[in-house]
C-alpha cells in the first residue's frame, strides 16, 4: 500500500478550508499549521502566471527526516505515512533541518509535529480531513498501488509535477497542472 495525494492547482482557490479543517481535526496549537496555502507568481508583468497550492508533508519515499532522526521517533508506518512518536522525540530539530519543505515544526510541548495523512481517520475508512472538506473537490487521496484508486487514475490521465524534485526526497504529493 502506498498512500498519496493529488491536488489540482487548476481548481484550488486558496480558501484555506483545508488548513482550518486540519487544525480542528488534529488539535493543532494556535498559530501553527500542518498544511498551508502558498501562491506562486511566475513571469514578468503583464505575462504572469499564478498558481495556488495546498501544501503539507509530502510523505516522501526517500525520507531524510526519518534517516536523520537520532532516536527513531520519526518513522514510517504502513502505507508510507511518516509519523513522529511524541514520547520518543527529544526535540533535537534534526528532522526539521532535513526537510526541504519545512513541513515540520516544534509543538509547544517540545516534540515535533507534522501532517499524518489523518491516519486515525483512514483506519475508520474516512478520508483525511483536508480532502474531505475541500469545497472545490481539488484533492484526491488514495492508494498508489491500487490501479483503480482515485489518485492512480487521476495521475495517469492528467499532467502533474512534484515540488523540488531536485531535493531528491521522492515526494508523494502530486500537483496537477
Amino acid at each position: 500500500m502506498r498512500y498519496a495525494m493529488a491536488i489540482d492547482t487548476k481548481k484550488c482557490v486558496g480558501c484555506s478550508d483545508c488548513v482550518v479543517a486540519c487544525q480542528t481535526e488534529n488539535n493543532v496549537p494556535l498559530g501553527f499549521c500542518r498544511d498551508w496555502i502558498s501562491e506562486t507568481t511566475d513571469g514578468t508583468y503583464p505575462k504572469l502566471e499564478l498558481e495556488i497550492r495546498s501544501e503539507r508533508c509530502n510523505h516522501c519515499d526517500n525520507t531524510p527526516c526519518v534517516r536523520t532522526c537520532p532516536t527513531g521517533a520519526s518513522h514510517i508506518i504502513d502505507g508510507g505515512i511518516i509519523k513522529v512518536t511524541h514520547f520518543e522525540c527529544i526535540g533535537c530539530g534534526a528532522c526539521i533541518e532535513s526537510c526541504p519543505y519545512d513541513a515540520r515544526y516544534f509543538h509547544p510541548e517540545g516534540w515535533v509535529d507534522k501532517c499524518t495523512f489523518c491516519d486515525h481517520r483512514l483506519k475508520n475508512g474516512q478520508l483525511p480531513a483536508c480532502v474531505s472538506v475541500c469545497p472545490t473537490k481539488c484533492m484526491y487521496f488514495g492508494d498508489l498501488d491500487d490501479k483503480n484508486s482515485v489518485v492512480s487514475k487521476i495521475i495517469a490521465t492528467r499532467k502533474w509535477k512534484v515540488l523540488a524534485p531536485e531535493a531528491g526526497t521522492s515526494p508523494q504529493i502530486f500537483y496537477l497542472v
Partner: peptide, 23 residues
Amino acid sequence: MKEEIITSGRMIPNIDPVLHVWH
C-alpha cells in the same frame, strides 16, 4: 521572476519566514 508567498497566515516561530531552529 518567481515569487512565492504563503497566504494561509502560516507564521510558525523559528520556521517562517526563514528557518532558525538551531541557535
